[in-house]
């Protein structure tokens, strides 16, 4: 479903992503792990069409992505962002946030779709007309997930979706993500530094260091704490 071939990204002289190739099958759940500055978010942004100057190939389904804003991208993948406080427009109600993608694409039956999606992400209907600041972090993240689901994309890009949340709320959101994937056969591409989250949510992972992919591993390797690269094991030892 997601296929990266020799993806390189440079800002001016400094290259931040160096020749990364990886493949995520349809319905798969892949995690890209690494520390800040490893280039993991940059790769995510390139897939999301927010970065224009990449080289190599990005293939989603059977569509080769163009540089920049590719209109085909909209129906193919949507993103859930890290910061539940920064990813929702502060002056728009949950209802407006969720119905906007429908209006953009002229899709009808907005009322039913909004209510259905609220139900799907486990957000009570009474929250529909609240503003983001009247919601808790976990509720906001549910709204962000609901927004990503509105256009029914097969691929979800997840940018540290739970790192800004409390542990107990993190569990709720992780459960939700797992359920949604099972119900809808979504393909997940997750960026994180949190190995336990990968263990819960993903099938495969790639370890990124300073823009280079040092290892592609299965989640079984993670669970048994047996990576083949030295850096992978270093990350394991620092995770507690």
């Amino acid at each position: 479903m997601i296929d990266l071939k020799h993806l390189s990204i440079a800002y001016g002289e400094t290259s931040v992503v160096k020749d990364v190739s990886l493949h995520v099958p349809e319905g798969g759940s892949f995690a890209l792990v690494g520390e800040s500055g490893s280039g993991k978010s940059t790769i995510l942004k390139a897939i999301a069409g927010q970065i224009t100057n990449w080289t190599g190939r990005i293939r989603l389904g059977d569509h080769d992505l163009q540089q920049g804003r590719d209109p085909a991208l909209i129906r193919l993948c949507q993103m859930v962002f890290q910061d539940p406080f920064g990813s929702l427009h502060p002056r728009k109600t949950v209802d407006t946030i969720l119905s906007e993608p429908l209006s953009i694409h002229g899709l009808g039956d907005q009322n039913r779709r909004v209510l259905e999606t609220l139900d799907a992400v486990g957000l009570a209907r009474k929250f529909r007309f609240r503003l983001p600041h009247q919601l808790s972090g976990g509720q906001r993240q549910r709204v962000a997930i609901a927004r990503a689901l509105m256009l029914d994309p097969p691929v979800m890009l997840l940018d540290e979706p739970t790192s800004a949340l409390d542990v107990s709320v993190q569990a709720e959101v992780l459960n939700l993500l797992k359920t949604l994937r099972e119900q809808r056969g979504l393909t997940y591409f997750l960026v994180t530094h949190d190995l336990p989250v990968v263990s819960f949510l993903c099938d495969n992972l790639g370890i990124l260091r300073q823009g280079e992919l040092v290892e592609l591993a299965t989640v079984e390797q993670l669970k048994q704490q047996r990576f083949s690269s030295e850096y992978g094991n270093e990350l394991l030892s620092k995770s507690y």
Partner: peptide, 12 residues
Amino acid sequence: SMPTLDEHRNRL
């Protein structure tokens, strides 16, 4: 509610 490195629970 915290996931672990060796996580086998289907739901947290």
